[in-house]
Amino acid sequence: MYYLGVDLGSLSCDAVLLDHDGGVLASSVVLTGARNREAIAKATDAVLRLAGITEDQIRATVSTGYGRDRVEKRLAAVTEITCHARGIKSLFGGAQILIDIGGQDSKAVRLDPNGQVIDFAMNDKCAAGTGRFLEAMARALQVDIEELADLDLGASGNVTLSSMCTVFAESEVVSLIADGVEVREIVSGLNRAIASRIVALVRRVAPMSNGLSIAMSGGVAHNSGVVRALSQAFETAISVPPKPDTVGALGAALIAREKYARQS
């Protein structure tokens, strides 16, 4: 018996397939694009192929992400807040704060010792500090988004960006380039700007975050520069799983397994 979690996000569609015991058999990440049903099919087909099973062997599917209602044949649709919390609990059981920075929004989630959500805060009204924001900045700097991760290394950290609005920040980056500011200084400034925004978000759920264990999920966690800036801002190490973008789908698959067990 197998369990599937599908996370249909704004930038990527992720799938995780679990076996009967809850072990991860396969995971996939595909671009969502304009046709989200196609993205769901691609992500699902990929995990089925990797695991060597057929769709009819899946006992339960739980969907999450902004497009969770678009997933057919689902046992339930669960919000990404609950799914990321469930996923991170299985990876870092002691996490007390979860930071999820996705393609188009960011979230701070406070967890109790059992991994249950006790408070959360979301920024979903603008793309500041999200994957879309980083894409725009990479474009302005004429680098691939993956290259951004270590471009801040060796920076003195004396460049500060005054705006986090994606449009204004892009203009500011262009101006800094025109002024001859080094790329590593600009990237360092971008990372610190994202971190300061996330600190404010976390303060809403944990006014005193000192000493709390922090984990991170979502695609932006692949960017080690952002993670470094967050670590400095919180003055603590941030736990990041090897595949941070599939944490929501993992949580969804775990919930699918639990729900199926309860129903049977």
Binding site: Y66, V78, T79, E80, I81, T82, Q116, V117, I118, D119, F120, M122, D124, K125
Partner: peptide, 13 residues
């Protein structure tokens, strides 16, 4: 409508 995820997550919590 934009608040849907927040309200659903609150109910789940």
């Amino acid at each position: 409508g934009q608040q849907r995820t927040r309200i659903e997550a609150f109910a789940e919590m």
